[in-house]
């Protein structure tokens, strides 16, 4: 299968620090790949490079087998790549519909649209449908998202990414600071997004969640991919060993 997104030999230095040292990465359509590694292993840098927030010094990117340049967030978006940031990046005073369409408002047709008037009905209906499809437990579409629970906000952020992503979604620590029930909802949401054929890349420190929801697990260490595991055949000990360098897989 052609990977939805593939990176080969990404390098990036910050002064004397090699954040990415020839890192490879790939994710197939309809697959959840977890990206794990100790602090400073280069996870955040890799995700930023793949989502257009950071330029790399060298390396190649392929989307569906085609060589692409992802040098701006807009370029990533036009390739169908969306990112859910750790700090959510929702506007807390806006409601779910407004957040869903922020920056992508549906305008009225004709003169009113040119004057800046929005099609509220269309946006609200589409948001309802998108949330229902994903089974998101958001009921109040007119309340500010800042008044909602952390789990609901995370669901809104994921649903927004899922609505706009056609190829890849990056999720940076989506279950950090969530309760048990809320974490369950977000993990279910991730599976449903994957079942639509979208590639999901999950960055997480939580090994149990990673093993539970991921199909493959790629381990980063010192700025390069040191191991790839099938999530069903690996164990927490093996993953931690790979992260710390105690185990080396060799075949990557």
């Amino acid at each position: 299968m052609t990977p939805a997104l593939e990176a080969r030999g990404l390098r990036r230095e910050f002064g004397h620090v090699r954040a990415l040292d020839g890192a490879d990465f790939d994710v197939d359509p309809g697959e959840v790949v977890a990206l794990i590694g100790d602090n400073g292993a280069g996870k955040s840098t890799l995700v930023k490079a793949l989502s257009g927030s950071l330029a790399v010094d060298s390396g190649e990117l392929y989307s569906d087998g085609q060589r692409v340049a992802i040098d701006t967030p807009a370029a990533a978006r036009s390739l169908g790549i969306e990112t859910v940031y750790q700090d959510l990046a929702l506007a807390p005073h806006l409601d779910p519909v407004q957040n869903m369409y922020l920056g992508r408002e549906v305008m009225r047709s004709g003169l009113l649209g040119h004057l800046g008037f929005m099609d509220h009905v269309e946006m609200k209906e589409n948001t309802r449908r998108a949330f229902a499809d994903l089974g998101a437990t958001v009921r109040d579409f007119a309340a500010p998202v800042g008044s909602m629970s952390g789990g609901q906000r995370q669901q809104i952020a994921v649903a927004r990414a899922a609505a706009w992503a056609s190829r890849v979604i990056f999720l940076d620590e989506p279950t950090a600071a969530l309760g048990v029930v809320q974490t369950r909802n977000v993990l279910d949401l991730i599976r449903r997004v994957r079942d639509r054929g979208i590639a999901v890349v999950l960055i997480s420190h939580s090994m149990p969640h990673v093993i539970e929801v991921a199909d493959r697990i790629q381990v980063l260490r010192l700025g390069r991919r040191v191991a790839t595991y099938d999530a069903k055949k690996t164990s927490m000990e093996e993953l931690v060993g790979a992260m710390t360098g105690a185990i080396s897989q060799g075949a990557t």
């Binding site: 506007a91 807390p92 005073h93 806006l94 407004q98 922020l102 920056g103 408002e105 800046g116 929005m118």
Partner: peptide, 23 residues
């Protein structure tokens, strides 16, 4: 009622979020 107004709230609510979605 307009997008201009919507962006005004968005910028005041979380300018970084607005920037990330292309406002």
């Amino acid at each position: 009622r307009t997008r201009f107004g919507r962006y005004t709230y968005a910028v005041g609510s979380n300018d970084e979020a607005a920037r990330r979605v292309g406002v």
